[in-house]
Design a protein around this nucleic acid. Structure first.
Length: 428
RNA sequence: GCGGAAUUGGUGAAGCGGUUAACACUCCGGUUUGUGGAUCCGGCAUGCGUGGGUUCGAGCCCCACAUUCCGCCCCA
């Protein structure tokens, strides 16, 4: 048997799982403070849910989808992103009903799947933390979403990033703009890179995003979508950037920012990190925007919506570089070393009592020699060691040693009933 | 999907086509048994990603595949 995980997947082992736990808990608490509730949707959906929402010709659908026929001959796909499934759940459960608050705000933390070549911060199974807000077309909802993204990153201790922002406008705007780009690039087609010549047919907007030297001079003179925005979109966008400025949230107006999924209709934004020790070029760790037609696309009522998603793997990489203290493990408080079979029961009792009072406590279930138990205490990074022998039991004393300086203290055994007082004495 | 590099024990790794795969760390045991992170002593790969091939003989050469990493496409 080949014992090997599938390509592009990772095991998150105990030496790092607590880091994920920590980050996810911070995110959850953060969202709840803004009154966003968690939603959990299936990790697979009918294929059409994703193909219709992301766009049939998008790369995500064309080559990155993990799809298969199930035993009932249903075309199933593992979710490549979070929004489509949440929108489907919103419609199917009629969460647009009058009894639900508007906007209807949710968050999720879940695995996503894309069939791609793995790289640093890119896997076939990866994790996203995302939020969606349904029901408000007010530009303040866009601001709130961006503010949440910004504040979550800063709560996590990520400081060095750029917020890029742009607006795609409504569908008519995008169609007109797309045509303008085609009209602009077609005459000079031969001078573009091979990739961009291909993009001209499949997704002209992406040419703006090209890193190719050949394209850059043409891109700078290309028509800008801001000049094509309808009054409504323009007004909203202006409100958004003005409010962000007033809130002292820095941003970069990025005419070349486009996003890979077809469903965006208004403001779009990305939080990008530049760190050459991690990635050669700027990398997006969080992306989002407004999508006002997706609910209708899924046969729901006309419902505007806005949201964002964070790539958790990339977030972890950036955190390791920018806020390593957040990712350090917490040590245990007490390791109980004991000598002799007569002391076993008392050892377990002390451990239970201390745990009940909220402390992290361990003892040696293997009952090795005292010396080996001390070594285990070191390895577990225990702050204190309690040593329990028949002597202590007879005298009813509690023998505590601080590992950092090797000082020992004797207390009355009864004092474990209130370990916080005890700790205070120890810390003096 | 395209291009490049890598793959030796728990870890970091050395290794000439030719007897028992160096060294270090970790780990385990011991250093006379109730106090640790030091020193010292001892132990720890029947195997060199997988499968073929070349050869008297392969970890070292050839081929295929797999996986990982880097870049591109694209994206989180």
């Amino acid at each position: 048997m080949r014992v090997q995980k599938p390509k592009g997947t990772v095991d998150i082992l105990p030496d790092t799982s607590y880091q994920w736990d920590k980050v996810e808990n911070i995110a959850k608490n953060f969202f709840r403070k803004a009154n966003y509730q968690e939603i959990r949707t299936p990790m697979f959906e009918n294929y059409e849910i994703f193909s219709r929402s992301s766009g049939e010709s998008s790369d995500v659908v064309e080559k990155e989808m993990y799809d298969f026929m199930d035993k009932g001959d249903r075309h199933i796909a593992l979710r490549p992103e979070g929004t489509a499934g949440v929108v489907r759940a919103y419609v199917e459960n009629k969460l647009y009903g009058p009894e639900y608050p508007k906007p209807y705000n949710v968050f999720y933390i879940a695995s996503m799947f894309r069939y791609e070549r793995p790289q640093a911060g890119r896997q076939r199974e990866f994790h996203q933390i995302g939020v969606e807000s349904f029901g408000s077309d007010n530009a303040l909802a866009d601001v709130e979403t961006i503010v949440l993204a910004h504040d979550l990153l800063s709560t996590l201790g990520i400081k060095k990033y750029e917020l890029h922002i742009n607006s795609l406008g409504n569908e008519a705007v995008r169609t007109a703009y797309r045509q303008a780009l085609v009209d602009y690039f077609t005459p000079i087609k031969d001078k573009l890179s091979d990739d961009s010549q291909r993009r001209l047919k499949t997704n002209p907007l992406r040419i703006l995003d090209s890193k190719d030297e050949e394209d850059i001079e043409f891109v700078s003179n290309a028509p800008r979508i801001r000049d094509y925005l309808d009054d409504e979109s323009k007004k909203n966008f202006e409100f958004i950037i003005r409010t962000l400025s007033e809130l002292k949230i820095d941003y970069v107006l990025d005419d070349d920012l486009v996003r890979g999924l077809d469903y965006y209709t208004g403001v779009i934004f990305e939080f990008m990190v530049e760190d050459t020790s991690l990635w050669q070029s700027k990398t997006t760790i969080l992306g989002g925007g407004r999508y006002n037609h997706l609910v209708e696309e899924f046969d729901g009522p006309k419902t505007p919506a806005v949201g964002f998603g964070i790539g958790e793997e990339r977030l972890m990489l950036v955190l390791k570089a920018q806020n390593p203290e957040l990712l350090t493990d917490s040590n245990i408080d007490f390791y109980i070393t004991n000598i002799g079979e007569e002391t076993i029961t008392k050892t377990v009792e002390i451990a239970r009592e201390l745990r009940k009072q909220g402390l992290k406590v361990q003892y040696d279930v293997e009952q090795k020699k005292l010396k080996a138990q001390f070594k285990k205490a070191d390895k577990a990074k225990a702050k204190y060691v309690i040593t329990l022998g028949v002597q202590e039991i007879e005298e009813n004393t509690l023998n505590i040693k601080r590992l950092s300086d090797g000082k020992s203290y004797a207390f009355n055994m009864d004092e474990i009933a209130n370990v916080n007082d005890l700790l205070q004495k120890l810390e003096r």
